[in-house]
């Protein structure tokens, strides 16, 4: 098994024990919250699992690399970044998805652009952001985030 997986589980277990010793009630409350968010995320996990299975079953490596690979060019990166900005899937699930795309022909640049816009930009939560922070701040944050996501992706493509 992967070291990171072991580490995360030990870390979570350690925090849990520590929290339990300090305050049982708060720990119970947090576990309840954890169970709720786990159930909330499950349908999306299964959707992505099916999606990845179908993608790897039917999409060939050349198809994936044509759309999201080295030869996708700037507009390919731009398009994937746009998809990442609009899509609303939890980033925790996006990483394994990104890894399987990377293994099957996608380039570092497109994957980095996808993950960065996906996490930084929230089109679905934008109305809420505007309501709480005002139009100017919300639009500036999301707009500039899109630009820096592409810059980050391009730099990563050059270095890695």
């Amino acid at each position: 098994m992967n070291i990171t997986v072991i580490f995360i589980n030990i870390f979570a277990g350690g925090c849990l024990i520590f929290s339990f010793i300090k305050d049982r009630k708060k720990t119970k409350q947090s576990l309840l919250g954890a169970a709720k968010s786990f159930i909330r995320i499950l349908p999306i996990v299964f959707i992505i699992i099916i999606f990845v299975g179908l993608l790897l079953g039917f999409g060939s490596q050349t198809q994936i690399s044509k759309i999201a690979g080295e030869h996708a060019g700037f507009w390919g990166v731009f398009l994937i970044a746009l998809v990442g900005a609009i899509m609303h899937i939890p980033s925790l699930i996006a990483f394994p998805l990104a890894a399987s795309l990377l293994k099957n022909g996608a380039s570092i640049t497109t994957i980095a652009a996808f993950i960065t816009t996906l996490t930084m930009i929230g089109t679905i939560t934008l109305p809420l952001e505007i309501k709480e922070l005002g139009k100017k701040v919300a639009l500036l944050r999301n707009g500039i985030s899109f630009i820096i996501a592409i810059i980050i992706a391009l730099i990563m493509g050059v270095i890695l």
Partner: peptide, 23 residues
């Protein structure tokens, strides 16, 4: 394969998030 990878990580991450949200 994907399912196995997720199931080893997600519960731990959820527990961490739950703990920090409360503390």
């Amino acid at each position: 394969e994907f399912f196995i990878e997720m199931i080893w990580i997600l519960p731990a991450v959820m527990v961490l998030m739950g703990l920090f949200a409360v503390w």
